[in-house]
Amino acid sequence: MKKNWWKILASVLVLFSIVGGFLFHVPAKPILNESIRNIYFHVPMWFSMIITLLMSVIYSIKYLNTNNENYDLIAVESANVGIVFGILGLITGAVWAKYTWGEAWSNDPKQNSAAIALLVYLAYLVLRNSIEEEQKRAKISSVYNVFAFPIMVILLFVLPRMTDSLHPGNGGNPGFNTKDMAPELRPIFYPACLGWILISIWITTIRYRIRKIENKQQSI
């Protein structure tokens, strides 16, 4: 139970963001209206995806260093969870865009590159499934993962900033621009991000443990 404190923390943080996200005061903006509250739910999906994919690449590197099979299993499962959160982010973003930008998919640079980033990671899974031999599979996909992560970072954080984007904070160099987000959004936004990140890690650990058991059964 003591080891579970962070799972409880995650649940409480997200619950707080659900209650606070609906009820707290938000700045009144044209076009956005109440949909500004989506920031508490849509953006944390992406943050969770980035953190789980970061975990994935870290464990891929660890695998390449140690050849410990378990590290490879963590890498796959965190990539799996990251992709799920990425798809959720894409769908919620499309819904939000439909009612604020006018179209679900307006070929916004960030939308496009997020979709490409997801495809890069789907290719990782396809690559894994195409190799029968276990060690070879683990090694090749780990190397692929090491390349995939920086590509994802460039696609999400560099390329959209080089052109105009409908997403806030893109075009020019926002850095840590304080104008990007109204300060009153932050007390809910940050807990929401942390909560969802922890939940994504939690799901990853569960999937990893199941995978480990399956792996053991197969090798017997």
């Binding site: 409480v12 619950l15 606070g20 707290f24 005061h25």
Partner: peptide, 27 residues
């Protein structure tokens, strides 16, 4: 129990802060 108490505390905190009105009509 820990979970429930912390949640209800946050809930009431949220409700108490939520009573805000501006000129713009939101929800």
């Amino acid at each position: 129990r820990l979970f429930l108490t912390s949640f209800s505390l946050l809930f009431f905190y949220g409700v108490s802060i939520a009573q805000n009105t501006d000129g713009v009509e939101m929800a």
